[in-house]
């Protein structure tokens, strides 16, 4: 609902990270494949973290769990 583009971006990054992982594994460079997977996770996390903190604020305010 809010900002559907973000979902598409995350999906595209996921696809690219998995293709990169496959290519690097097949070429024998497993450490670098692991590294790019981690980098992909961090990038997606950075893109999403604002929304997640907003979600927690909303939940706290809604249930008045201060």
């Amino acid at each position: 609902m809010i900002n559907v583009d973000l979902i598409f971006k995350i999906a595209a990054i996921g696809i690219i990270v998995s293709v990169l992982n496959m290519v690097l594994n097949k070429a024998g460079r497993e450490e670098q494949a692991m590294m790019t997977t981690l980098v992909g996770i961090i990038v997606v996390l950075m893109m999403v973290i604002n929304l997640v903190s907003e979600l927690f604020e909303t939940v706290k305010a809604m249930f008045q769990l201060y």
């Binding site: 971006k9 595209a12 990054i13 690219i16 990270v17 293709v19 990169l20 290519v23 690097l24 990038v43």
Partner: peptide, 14 residues
């Protein structure tokens, strides 16, 4: 060559 292509895609999407 494949790495270059994929890196380009990744940066363009990000």
């Amino acid at each position: 060559k494949q790495l270059g292509l994929l890196a380009g895609f990744a940066i363009a999407i990000v």
